[in-house]
Design a protein around this nucleic acid. Structure first.
Lengths: 216, 216
DNA sequence: TAAGTAACGAACTAGCTAGTTAATTGTAGG
DNA sequence: CCTACAATTAACTAGCTAGTTCGTTACTTA
């Protein structure tokens, strides 16, 4: 059952999981870097300790490999998101916490964001085929929904928006900051990811969402 | 001087400007649709009433053609933006007007947004080479800057943000809504561009920016 | 220990793709 | 009219790229 992962030293061991994982890791980088059409299967193979044949052995084709990389990236993010507990916080603080969590995630996972951008260029045609898509909406929205309800019941949040609206608002800010950083910097000569400005934008995001929610 | 644009009917006339413009139009669609690497010079040529050789005749190469399309798209948007006059409005109303203008522009120019996304995937390497880049920051920021100053002087806007911050905030929302529409819809089953929700989001954007600015 | 199977590697191929060559035609100025 | 040049066309090519073929090597199990 258990794969013989432990290596005996210099001798090349066989390890399916390891090979598969390595291909996936390199593929994620390559696709995130060059886009689907720009990525080269040969290049992915070259940056791997294995060969191109293995890519087809484990993933059957470029498109399936791309989808696997995309799904894997979503799985990683989702894994992080599911470890949230904001029930102890009062609504406003909970919202700020959730926003900052998104802020941090996006900043520390640029490859994920790049893959999402790329997938949007393709009008989500691959993601739509994914089998893990249904579970993707995930906890983020449910948690947010609970907090919003509490806030509304306490008479502190406006009534005319739902969890998806707020999620969209938070994502917008975080996604733009990292995904559109390059053209923004080229045009306005400001690096949105400059560490010196990080706290400024993090607070700005929270203020923005709460300023909006507590209106009316 | 004047090109013989008027056509005599069925006979094929020569017209450099027209040919160039047609290539650029089709190229913009193709690049926006498939990305830089995914776009095919042969395909662009095929969808034109001219031939591939003409693409090289007028644009010298795929990369220069892409840059021309990108620059042209920016020029169009900038042309629209420069026709703004919000000096007559009070600060809050002016901000809302500017936000709605961006909202409308982005919604009605999806190709532009797609090109921007694509250019960000490429880390703005082409845009950086562009000669019209310096003039691109343009009026949008200056106008915004004036409004913010007026608002601050009237004691109605917070002091700790500048025009670029607010511009970023507005762009975030508008860009996300159109550029990330596909993955958002795939995951959450909500079409951010559904006409039924248009007014909701348009008002939401204004409320968000003003709610933020009038805090503190 | 023999046989079967999973994991691996190198070389190959058919089709595509950006870019080119070279010849042709319309048009303006003399 | 006719000459020079701008605009246009069709066919070609060198190099690339996803996907394959076929054979080899380690590991498992009966």
């Amino acid at each position: 059952m258990a794969a013989p992962t432990s290596d005996t030293g210099a001798i090349k061991q066989r390890d399916a999981d390891r090979t598969r994982a390595e291909i996936l890791r390199v593929a994620t980088e390559e696709f995130a870097d060059k886009g689907y059409a720009g990525a080269r299967v040969d290049e992915i193979a070259a940056r791997t300790s294995t060969t191109k044949r293995m890519i087809y052995y484990y993933f059957t084709g470029k498109e399936q490999l791309y989808l696997a990389a995309l799904e894997n990236a979503y799985a990683v993010i989702r894994g992080l998101e599911s470890q949230v507990d904001v029930d102890a916080l009062e609504p406003a603080e909970a919202i700020r916490r959730l926003a900052e969590l998104t802020f941090d995630h996006h900043e520390s996972h640029p490859d994920f964001l790049r893959l999402v951008s790329i997938e949007n260029i393709h009008r989500a045609e691959h993601l739509t085929k994914s089998e893990l898509l249904p579970g993707l909406a995930g906890p983020a929205v449910e948690v947010l929904d609970g907090v919003l309800r509490r806030g509304r019941e306490a008479g502190r949040f406006r009534e005319d928006v739902d969890a998806l609206d707020v999620h969209m608002m938070i994502s917008s800010f975080c996604v733009f900051r990292t995904a559109n950083r390059y053209t923004f910097q080229a045009i306005f000569e400001r690096d949105l990811l400059d560490p010196k400005r990080r706290e400024h934008y993090r607070r700005m995001l929270g203020d923005m969402v709460l300023g909006f929610l507590s209106q009316d």
